[in-house]
Design a protein around this nucleic acid. Structure first.
Lengths: 190, 190
DNA sequence: CTTTCGACCGAAAAACGGTATTGGTCGAAA
DNA sequence: TTTCGACCAATACCGTTTTTCGGTCGAAAG
């Protein structure tokens, strides 16, 4: 039962990555999972739900990766650095894998919006916690943790952009580190 | 002669703003400029060139506005603040005026890409100069001016995004200031 | 009672052929 | 030098027909 679901998800994941959401039909998925279309509908009630589950799985893996990276780092600023860099490199991989999907204007689908929003909330929570941990250890000096974590989030989001347009010679690790240097040290003479 | 060109540009600007690039025809522009279509082609060799010129004019006004704001501010960090905030508010106005244009996927047109790139270069130059001025006055402490100005550019670019999707209750001035606080002060305890 | 699937439905997309627009050219005339 | 009517070719548009595809249903297999 759960075995079959996994089979469907796995098939769907590959197809979505290769052909995108629109070009992948339920029959493609069914065929690749070695069953009839109706059987897929026995496990998922819509195409969107299959896709949502694929994304959910990917997100889960992503978050585990992030948490592992963070807990491997020792200092608060090292943790933030680990978070950002892991985030960027993972996104770089994703952008290659899901290349057909990126230009497939599915921003309108509400569930994509939801996933994005969920991740946004997750990210802000993580950053907020890391900031607070840093404050406790007297490493950081910020008063409005919520605002600052949002600003960090926005700043690193800016680094994302070149990943989704063509941009060779783009080194996300260097860019991330540069950005974090600014965020940590600031530019003003103290 | 130049008088006629201006007339065309003015007519085109209004039409592009109201109907977008695709829905605006050369005859519309000609009619609004009180001349025949072929006459427009006497002054401009293509529709794209008309559009490019419109954008070029707008950009010029934008840059003058920015330079005025910068020279009004006294301190180096005040100048950067003035630059960023003027930039954001102007973009906010633009996004309203050209609302039909934003979702009209003209990223593929190379001249749009060029204008964007030109502005990007311009912005980096301005920021670089402001940074260097600040360094001379002993206000800033940065070693790689080019990298840092790029980072500032990227960070404030992130603030742009909510302007072009629907986002009421978005206060670009507050967001800009928050971001600049991070960039100036950093978050680490010194 | 769970699971599979062939047959089917309706809506939306593709195919298509013919017409109208529209970006762009040219040569004549003002 | 400047304007414009006439013209061209490519493409947008439109109404219609056909196909595809997401999703349902009921029967049957296990």
């Amino acid at each position: 039962m759960d075995e079959k679901k996994k089979k469907i998800i796995k098939a769907a994941e590959q197809l979505f990555a290769q052909f995108g959401f629109l070009k992948t039909t339920m029959e493609d998925i069914a065929k690749k999972a070695h069953m009839g279309k109706s059987s897929v509908y026995y496990y998922f009630k819509s195409k969107e739900e299959v896709f949502a589950e694929v994304i959910r799985q990917d997100t889960l893996v992503f978050q585990q990766k992030l948490e592992a990276a963070v807990s491997n780092a020792k200092t608060p600023d090292g943790k933030i650095r680990a978070y950002v860099i892991t985030r960027m490199t993972h996104l770089q991989d994703l952008s290659k894998f899901y290349s057909t999907l990126t230009d497939e204007y599915l921003d309108h689908y509400l569930f994509v919006e939801e996933v994005r929003k969920d991740f946004y909330v997750y990210e802000n929570t993580v950053l907020k916690n890391l900031l607070e941990e840093g404050i406790k250890q007297n490493c950081f000096d910020v008063d409005d943790v919520v605002t600052i974590s949002r600003m960090i989030s926005i700043a690193i989001k800016g680094l994302e952009f070149p990943l989704f347009v063509e941009a060779k010679d783009y080194d996300p690790v260097k860019e991330s580190n540069d950005m974090l240097n600014v965020i940590f040290k600031g530019i003003e003479n103290q």
